[in-house]
Amino acid sequence: MRSDVDPDPWPTENPTRVALVTGASGGIGRAVAERLAADGMTVAVHYAGRRDRAQDVVDAVTAGGGQAVLVNADVADEHEVATVFDRIEQELGGIDVVVHTAGIMLLSPVEELDLDEFDTMHRTNVRGTFVVAREAARRVRRGGAIINFSTSVVKLALPSYGAYAATKGAVDALTMILAKEMRGRDVTVNAVAPGPTATPLFLEGKSQEVIDRMASLPPLERLGEPGDVAEAVSFQAGAGRWVNGQVVYVNGGVA
């Protein structure tokens, strides 16, 4: 599949910091993009297949007085991802924060999982994370941040999440090692591990009974909201300079 960076004009004057948010066309990715824009960053809103939803994010950011641009790529394609980074550098002057929220979740007991589905998740969740993280490690400016997305299910070990959690366990390992490899660069590398969060990705295919049961797990007795997760990302992208090489669980206290 061939994707190109969106050809629309980009702003000629930008705030000091520039962020790329992958998977920003909906759910947690949208909340992250809007929050970083509210923090004063110019945000490159990445999408893979839903340009209309990504444009809605850009429109929301600009309506609020922020700056946002569209970028389009298959996150597992290293050439397309490099093209996105190239244009961000050329048009916006550099890149300071990379938040990789793009991912897919297919649920099944291990013994029943179609291996084609496992390969699909692996390509997006593992290879895609590696490709984006590799490019970010080469490009992010001093004082910047790389933030990957894991899941609390790695720790919770819920049935039917085996293959998905396995892909995110790889993200955890990559994150902690990359943080050490960035020594001397003044770039933090962390992962956010949301718990049950009210997004289309989480809610799709679940009965109300299952949703209610998941909402009862945290001591706070509710599902997380995308804004809860975006708050944690904002901290890591900004003031949280002493948080590094960590998988930060954002799940309301689920254990």
Rank of each mutant, 00 (worst) to 15 (best):
R2E: 07
S3K: 10
P7S: 02
W10C: 13
T16W: 04
L20H: 11
G23Y: 09
A24S: 04
G26H: 02
R30V: 01
A33Q: 02
A37D: 06
D39F: 11
D59W: 09
A60G: 05
A60T: 01
G66S: 07
V69L: 00
V75R: 03
A76Y: 04
D77F: 04
E78D: 10
H79V: 13
A82D: 12
T83A: 15
T83S: 15
V84W: 13
V84E: 09
Q90S: 15
V98F: 08
V98P: 14
G103I: 14
I104H: 08
I104T: 14
I104L: 15
I104R: 14
S108F: 09
D114V: 14
D116P: 07
E117W: 08
D119F: 12
T120C: 05
T120E: 14
R123P: 04
V126Y: 05
R127I: 06
V131R: 10
V132G: 10
V132A: 07
G144Y: 01
I147G: 12
S150V: 10
V154I: 15
K155P: 04
L156M: 15
A165H: 11
K168T: 11
G169W: 14
A170R: 11
V171C: 06
A173N: 11
L174E: 07
M176Y: 04
I177R: 00
A179H: 05
E181Q: 08
A193P: 12
P194T: 01
P196N: 04
T197G: 07
F202S: 12
L203Q: 06
G205D: 13
D212N: 08
L217A: 07
R222P: 05
R222F: 11
G224F: 06
G224E: 01
G227I: 10
S234T: 14
S234E: 12
F235E: 12
Q236L: 14
G238I: 00
G240I: 02
V247I: 15
V247M: 08
Y249M: 09
V254D: 11
